[in-house]
Design a protein around this nucleic acid. Sequence first.
RNA 1: GGUGCCGUACCCAAGUGGUAAGGGACAGGUCUGCAAAACCUCUAUGCACCGGUUCGAAUCCGGUCGGCACCUCCA
Length: 475
Amino acid sequence: MVFSVYNTMTRRVEPFEPIAKDFVRMYCCGPTVYNFAHIGNLRTYVFEDVLRRTLEFAGYRVRHVMNVTDVGHLTDDGDDGEDKMLKSSKETGRDVYEIARLYTEAFFADTDALHILRPETACRATEHIGDMIALIKRLEEGGHTYQAGGNVYFSIDTFPQYGELARLNLDELRSGARIDVDVNKRNPKDFTLWFTNSKFENQAMLWDSPWGRGYPGWHIECSAMSMKYLGETFDIHCGGIDHIPVHHTNEIAQSEAATGKPWVRYWIHGEFLLSDKGKMSKSKGEFLTLHVLVKKGYDPMDYRYFCLGGHYRSQLQFSWQSMDSARNARRNLFDRVVELKQKAKPAAVLSVEAQRYLDLFTEHLGADLNAPRGLADMWNLLKDPTVVDGEKLACLYQMDRILGFNLEDIPSEIKEEPSAPEEIQLLLEERLKAKREKNYTRADELRAIVEGAGYQLKDTPNGTTVTKSCNQNQG
RNA sequence: GGUGCCGUACCCAAGUGGUAAGGGACAGGUCUGCAAAACCUCUAUGCACCGGUUCGAAUCCGGUCGGCACCUCCA
């Protein structure tokens, strides 16, 4: 399978070639665990999951590393603003470590529900402070740092390629009216590697360092941990597009300044999910979580389907109408799969026709992860009368290795409906009697009563079933 | 103010020079006492608008209008 992908560094779709044959080292920027992940965050993890699954489908072994940012970070990049962990701690009255643990668990519960494969290594920032200090020391030895006002800063003027990823024009940025520039900085774009003398009361997360007791800047963890687990040069680094101008730009500077080597070969960024009020953001307060979606009656797979319906490099507009659309599509898909399972076993070998669909599918996913196109290929397969059921099933299972709906796990038997209350059962019996007597007026009256009580009736050859109308989970 | 992206049917959304994927919704049909489910069929001579290049443009170029993102913590 051919795989090519858009590299933010070159702004082009490039053929993918890992450093080692058949082995891919991939680092994904993980969650900050001071709050729940919102569905916009989760869109990025779905995209990264599709990326990983596509690489694995293509035959690569993928070493997937992700950080968990449990160190408090400031609400801006200077030495002011508010520590978000601390803020959350204050608001909830919990210990900062407890906050981190709580939201880390919540994060993985969400990603599990979305069938996002867990990274091989999920590393906590707080457990790698020593690695960060070592990296800062290395930068210090190389003359890339300076101390001022108690903090250690990275000097971007010691790294000529600074801003290459984001194509920053430093002259223009410098002349731009930036408010509240940290007076300690020699260059406004310099960033902090290590903070000391925290100005925050009750600062709970502090570590000793050669520069004093304090805590790391918010970019250093990704450099330190990615290099620890993946080496000083690795294949893929991904995250949301918002990371391009600051976070990833600074990570490159400190990593490459420290090692003198190219750090990452492919930068892959996912676009934002937008709500009708613009992008979703943790710090703006209100945001939608997966939990809210589930409470409203959506299956997590509905959201996964929704995400797959748009290309990862395009902004995707969230709306309830779109969610309903995705839910219906996903249910239709699952229903078809159940039907196929009841009729056939997956074929051991694919026919030429079935293989053609799989080839198209992998071609489309291989071309910069065109998941919407892959979904279309899947539907075309399902609708093709020339492909027999067993082959459809086998082909679907192959596609599902990337799509991640876990189609093989869908129960092929019709679920036992929870029985309705006794008074409803009595009404149903009465209706059945009316039907037998061909008193359809009475039967329809009874249908109306039962439906009015919140139940949906379905007459099947095997009898009448009732389902609670508001229970819309699992089609 | 600077930078970049986008505008495709009722909705979502692929397609980036060769004659408009897919899903949802709607409608019609088969089936059914009715309803549901299922299956089938149908929905853009046209891709914001105007002009240009080309044998050929949704795709390239110029302009106009509209929407969005980033430049500040954010996936």
